[in-house]
Design a protein around this nucleic acid. Sequence first.
DNA 1: TTGGTTTGTGTAACCGTATACATACTATAT
DNA 2: ATATAGTATGTATACGGTTACACAAACCAA
Lengths: 329, 329
Amino acid sequence: MNKRRITSRELAKLAGVSSATISRAFSPDSRIGNATRDRILAVAREYGYQPNAIARSLNNQRSRLVALVVNAIGNPCEAEEQQLLVHRLQARQLLPIILCCADHDDRLQLMRLASTYQVDHVVVFSDMVSMQDAVDIFHTTKPIIVSFEPLENEKVSSVRIDGSAAADEIIDKIVADGKKRFAYLSGTKSSWIDKLRRKWFVDALTKRGLTLQAEAFGDYSYDSGFKEAVLLLHRAKVDAIICGNDVMAIGARDAARRVLGKSTPDDIAIVGQDGIAMAAWDCNDLTTLSLDHAAFIDAVVDLIERHDAGLEGPHSITLTCTVRWGSTA
Amino acid sequence: MNKRRITSRELAKLAGVSSATISRAFSPDSRIGNATRDRILAVAREYGYQPNAIARSLNNQRSRLVALVVNAIGNPCEAEEQQLLVHRLQARQLLPIILCCADHDDRLQLMRLASTYQVDHVVVFSDMVSMQDAVDIFHTTKPIIVSFEPLENEKVSSVRIDGSAAADEIIDKIVADGKKRFAYLSGTKSSWIDKLRRKWFVDALTKRGLTLQAEAFGDYSYDSGFKEAVLLLHRAKVDAIICGNDVMAIGARDAARRVLGKSTPDDIAIVGQDGIAMAAWDCNDLTTLSLDHAAFIDAVVDLIERHDAGLEGPHSITLTCTVRWGSTA
DNA sequence: TTGGTTTGTGTAACCGTATACATACTATAT
DNA sequence: ATATAGTATGTATACGGTTACACAAACCAA
């Protein structure tokens, strides 16, 4: 028990070949006799031999590890994407290392740690980390892939998101319903994506000669959505709240309904963003500016494949958001 | 750009020392002059040198990688724990590799892949993978850690969960409210933890001379909770549904409310399990048999520390569940 | 002064695999 | 039969660190 793992040299002795031949038996297209390969694989199975990936990585200069920088693991909007991406990576025999840290300095520290593991790719899902920091830390890695912040840099490939058309569509509908006093409930202040989302809606309003009547800042959580909505509705007369994500929107709806006794969409329109599965639950049925998560991850995987194929230059892909209509707007 | 990372030998040349000395400069307690160390660290910073963790792992026989086998990433009940664990690991400079796979065979394949990376620890969060498989695959790893299924094996340490007292308490209350026709809505059939949870409640009922009036099987998702509850309520007259997790409970409650027009807890009692944050949201306010996630992760980390400290034998810790009372029972 | 201990550094050998190169063997063509 | 190409395998080294061992210098005690 806990016996040391057998090495290729030991297995070579056992199989009566050299360690080079062992290695060849495990590389699909290398010059080796079929009989020899079969014999080696049989002996390997018998002794439970598996090539050591750490040693191989050192030799190959290729670890097959991917660093995934995320805000949080539980956060539903990211979680759906994380889940998809992890599956796709694993199908390519790439192993994801999750880097997840609330504190900014810790996060840098963590990224430095991961970089010492010579990760092959870096995917930044968090909009809380400055791309410049990431570029500095992973300067030896292939072009970093990043989701949101569009840093123009030869090291950064990105998947960009455009929700302006969807925001237009949503505002159209709400205005058509006779509402005109809009509020925006932001997510975390330092979030780059939050600024972008807000802009889509502000632009849509501006086009129609409208402006935000009130504004508040939460932290993407249900509780913050609830609390900020209560405060907002007490201090301003608004008939529509656009929220930075779906979870806050659910919080805001509960606040409007329970604390203020308002109903959606008659008294007030509530809009979320993300298009998480929970938004479509019967009890929520949220109207939300939603992203096709599968398409998003397809794009990320595309970029990873480009890097793997050795295409050096950065590249970027833009995705368009759509609206998922619910009963809240 | 994309310049190769500098090696310790190169840095040694630049600093006018041997590569051994470079290595010593980076190991906290090794014999090296203070002046030399400072000089080396300065030069290292200048050239962006960081020891290569892959090479170090090969030499050390210690990768500082931890495999985390999970059912899914988005799943809220696990997500809270995953998040906590990842933080705790990272604080110890351990990097988590997430293994997440729906399909059984793929999962084995994935575990084999991770084992070639010489992970130092394995934490199995999924009750879908047989502990025996895990033991076989990670036979060279230190006592594998943890999870639910209490396999008596010298390689398995575990954190066990006891919810029988909490189940008693819940049944007490519901019976006191005049209900006596109970149904149980299970999660995934092959789930070990689901069987355990069901047993707590069945035992509590048996003690009071009651039996389950109906039973159904979902897959832990909202949709399955909703759908199965509809079918269940149409085919059997029950006034209490115990669900395998909180998400299904929310689905069941929506079904009871929207499709059958029943209200909780007057017409029907609904109980969840897990104690996820969402259960406490104002719109849910679920009664749930809940686990202290922080305590759970503390226990897992304890076990990891034991292994790290070289305590060979397996060990197990048992945690007791509590009830979070909401308005659904 | 001598002998012994401590401290700082270099040398060389490993960790386990992959691969360039050399070599032996087979098969085919002349 | 011999030259030639092709195939299968072994030898040796590199990947980038760590560390046991050796050694020199410095320090201290007798």
